[in-house]
Computed example of a mutant assay.
Amino acid sequence: MGDKPPGFQGSRSWIGCVEASLCLDYFGGPQGRLCHVPRGAGLHRELERLYSHFAGGGGPVMVGGDADAQSKALLGVCLGPGTEAYVLVLDPHCWGALNNPSELQAAGWVGWREASMAFDPNSFYNLCLTTCNSEKQQHALD
């Protein structure tokens, strides 16, 4: 796409949520809306937005941080009474054929995590919220 030095192509260097959003746009994938959270402790204030995203039919949310270098994808949010909240986390490194969702969970690839424990309170996070943009996707299919 031209945003990286020539040696980046073909390398095994990582990209973040910002670059993933650029790739989605460049290659005609779903739209990726970025949300920056300066500290993981502030992520609790974004849970309503994430809940609305999923309730409205939004797709997976890519998550990247600095001090928390463990990439993750969010597939859902469950808000309980008071400050109780859980996020459905998928490890994006999951690969191979599994027969059913129970196998994913048993293998640790996907599971509900308490929101306050799923994120490092001192790390910043970039979230890439994916949404279906049917006009763009239809153009990419043409």
Rank of each mutant, 00 (worst) to 15 (best):
E46P: 00
G2Q: 10
V89H: 07
N133H: 13
G65C: 05
A140S: 12
W112G: 04
R33F: 10
P30G: 15
G57R: 02
P5A: 12
V63P: 10
F54E: 07
D91G: 00
V61S: 01
G111K: 07
L141G: 15
L104P: 00
D91L: 04
V77S: 05
L47R: 09
H53T: 06
E103I: 11
A41T: 04
G59F: 06
P101I: 07
D68A: 08
A140V: 10
Q137I: 13
L90P: 00
G64N: 06
H53V: 06
S134H: 03
K72S: 15
G80S: 13
C17N: 12
C35V: 13
V61C: 02
S123R: 12
D68R: 07
R113N: 09
A69T: 05
Y26W: 11
D120M: 02
S11Q: 04
D25R: 14
S102A: 14
A73E: 06
V18H: 01
G29W: 03
Y125H: 09
W95V: 13
L24M: 08
W109V: 01
L127V: 10
M1Y: 12
Q138R: 15
G29H: 05
R45S: 11
A85S: 02
G42W: 07
N133Q: 10
S52V: 09
G111L: 08
C128L: 06
G111F: 06
L104E: 03
K4I: 05
Y125W: 09
R49S: 02
S123L: 04
M62F: 12
E103P: 02
L75R: 01
E84R: 11
F54S: 01
G42D: 15
K72L: 09
S102E: 11
H93G: 08
S102C: 08
A73M: 11
W95M: 09
A118T: 10
Q137T: 08
E46D: 07
S116P: 11
G76F: 07
A20C: 10
T83D: 05
H139E: 15
D66L: 06
L90H: 07
L88I: 03
V61A: 04
S134P: 04
P121Y: 05
K72P: 01
P30E: 14
L47V: 06
Q70W: 12
V77E: 00
A41D: 09
R39E: 08
E114V: 15
W112V: 08
E135Q: 14
A20S: 01
Y125E: 14
P60M: 09
Y86R: 13
P60R: 01
E19T: 11
G56R: 06
G16R: 02
Q105W: 07
S102P: 00
G58N: 01
P121A: 11
C128H: 02
C78S: 13
G108P: 05
M62S: 15
E19A: 03
A106K: 14
L104V: 06
L79H: 03
T131H: 05
